[in-house]
Write a protein that binds this DNA or RNA. Structure first.
Ligand code: NAD
Ligand code: NAD
Lengths: 218, 218
DNA sequence: CCTGAAATGTGAATCCATTCACATCGTTCA
DNA sequence: TGAACGATGTGAATGGATTCACATTTCAGG
C-alpha cells in the first residue's frame, strides 16, 4: 500500500505539532483532538494514521510517543539529507537562519550564489560558494537537495545546472514553474500565488472556499 | 458557476507566467504550450480556462492579452488590498522587500512587531509599528490582509488579536496550524513540511508521487 | 471554394480524497 | 465481574478533480 502525497504532507504536520507544539505532559491524544488542532476532521486523521502500521486503542487514543516514532519510520527520518541553498539573497539567508536550528535530519551544509561578493564567506553559519563549484562541492558533501532562491528569470537555467550536477530533490521558491527530468523530486512554493489566493477569498465574496476551515498546503 | 480553490490557484500562476515570464512577441498561446510550461496536461489547462468566459479559437489558441485580461476580471484584480506583515524578523523583512515591487493591487503598507527596537522605524521602506497599535493602524489604513511571520509559539495569540482588530484574510508562515472564525480567509505555507516532502521523495524511493511532473502548490 | 490538419470545448469516464456510518473493542465504573 | 460508554478501524458512499475522447470549429493551401 503506497502512501499518497497528500497523506505524506499531513503526516509531516502531525509530527511537527506533536514534537514541538504539544503539551509535554499529555501522553495520549484522540483523533478528534488532533483534528481540531490541525483544522480537519477526525475521520481524516484516523485515515491518515492508518498508514502507520500503529494502532490506537479505543477509549484511550494514540500514545504520543509511539505516534511520533511510527511517523518517523514511515517518513524515513533516519536518513540524513544534506541540503544546499541556491541563491543567498534575502530569502536564502532567511531560510539559512531558520532551517539551521531545525530537524537534525535535514542539514543545510552549503549555499551557492553567482555574486562574487558572497563567495567563500560564511553566511548565517553556512559556507557560501561560487556557482561554478556546485558540482564539486555537491559531490564532496553528499548534497542531495537544493532550495532554489534565485530570481525567476534565472530559475530554469540554474535548475539545469543543478540537475547536471546530480541533484535529487528541489524545493523551488522562484515564482515560475521549472522543468526537470523524471526521477527528481520537486515541490514548489509560490508565495505570490498564495497571497493572491488569500486576497481572492478576502474580497467580500461569500465565505471561504467550501466549508473548509484550514487550507491545504499548499 | 462557482470557481474552485484549485482552479483559482492555477489561474494566478497562469497569469504570473503570462505577465512576467512569457516572450513579449508571442501574441497567441496554445493550451498545450501553457501545459508544458506549467507542468500539467493540456486538457487541464483548457478546463481551467473555461471558467473565464473567454474562448480561444481552434487552430489559433488563446490571445495572450485577452487571457490576462479575463483572468484579472475573474480574480478581481481591480480591487486593491492593503496588507500588513506581522512579525518583522528575517522572513518578514525578506517578504517586505520581495513584495514591495510586485502586483500593484497588493500593497504592503505596514509591519507590526512587539520588539520595541523595531517600532516606529522604516524597514525596507515599510513603516513598522508596535503590536498594540495594530487595531488603530489597521482601521486607519484599511488593512484587510495580514502575513503572519511570528514564531510558532506566538502564532495563535497574535492571530486572535488580528481577528479582534478586524482582519479579513491571513497568510500564515508559522509552522503551526492556527484557528480562526469562519468568514476569514486563510492560507498556510509550511516550509518545513514542504522540505520534508522533498526529502521523502528524494530518498531512493521509486520515483516521484504518481507520474506528476510538477507538484501542486501547496 | 473545398479539403485536411490542428486546436478547441465539453460530456462522460475515471481516479482520488474525504466523509459517513457502524461494527468492534478496551476501559471504566457500578 | 459485567455492562455501558466512547473511541477506534474501515467498507461503502459521496464528492471533486483530472483525464479521455471526440464532435466541432477554424485556418491554410490547393
Ligand atoms: N524574498 C522573499 O521573501 C521571497 C518570497 C518568495 C519567493 N521569493 C523568490 O525567491 C527568489 C529570491 O528572492 P530574494 O528576495 O532572495 O531575491 P534576492 O535578489 O535578494 O536574491 C537572489 C540571489 O540570487 C543570486 N543569483 C542571481 N542569479 C543567480 C544565478 N544565475 N546563479 C546563482 N545565484 C544567482 C543573486 O546573487 C542573489 O544573491 C526570487 O525568485 C523570488 O521571487 C522571494
Ligand atoms: N526565516 C524563514 O526563512 C522562515 C521560513 C518559513 C517559516 N518561517 C516561520 O516564520 C516565522 C518567523 O520566522 P523568522 O525567521 O522571521 O523569525 P525571527 O525570530 O527572525 O522573527 C520573528 C519576529 O516576530 C516578532 N515577534 C515575536 N513575538 C511576537 C508577538 N507576540 N507579536 C508580534 N511580533 C512578535 C519578533 O520580534 C521577531 O521580529 C516563524 O514562525 C518561522 O517558523 C520562517
Amino acid at each position: 500500500m503506497s502512501i499518497s502525497s497528500k497523506v505524506m504532507g499531513r503526516l509531516t504536520r502531525y509530527r511537527a505539532l506533536l514534537t514541538e507544539y504539544f503539551p509535554k505532559d499529555k501522553l495520549h491524544v484522540f483523533s478528534h483532538e488532533l483534528a481540531t488542532m490541525m483544522g480537519f476532521s477526525a475521520s481524516q486523521v484516523r485515515r491518515d494514521l492508518m498508514c502507520l502500521g500503529y494502532f490506537g486503542v479505543p477509549r484511550y487514543g494514540y500514545e504520543v510517543k509511539e505516534l511520533i516514532h511510527h511517523i518517523n519510520d514511515v517518513l524515513d527520518a533516519s536518513k540524513v539529507h544534506h541540503v544546499a541553498v541556491v541563491g543567498a539573497g534575502n530569502l536564502g539567508r532567511a531560510l539559512m537562519s531558520f532551517l539551521g536550528s531545525r530537524r537534525a535530519t535535514l542539514k543545510i551544509v552549503a549555499a551557492f550564489d553567482d555574486d562574487p561578493q558572497l563567495a567563500n564567506r560564511l553566511i548565517n553559519g553556512v559556507p557560501c560558494y561560487a556557482m561554478d563549484r556546485a558540482e564539486e562541492i555537491m559531490k564532496h558533501q553528499g548534497i542531495t537537495i537544493a532550495i532554489l532562491c534565485v530570481p525567476g528569470s534565472a530559475a530554469q537555467r540554474v535548475t539545469d545546472r543543478l540537475v547536471i550536477a546530480g541533484i535529487k530533490g528541489i524545493l523551488n521558491f522562484a515564482p515560475v514553474p521549472i522543468r526537470i527530468p523524471v526521477g527528481i523530486a520537486l515541490e514548489e512554493i509560490d508565495v505570490t500565488s498564495a497571497l493572491e489566493r488569500v486576497a481572492f477569498y478576502t474580497t467580500s465574496r461569500t465565505g471561504t472556499p467550501k466549508k473548509r476551515r484550514n487550507s491545504p498546503q499548499e
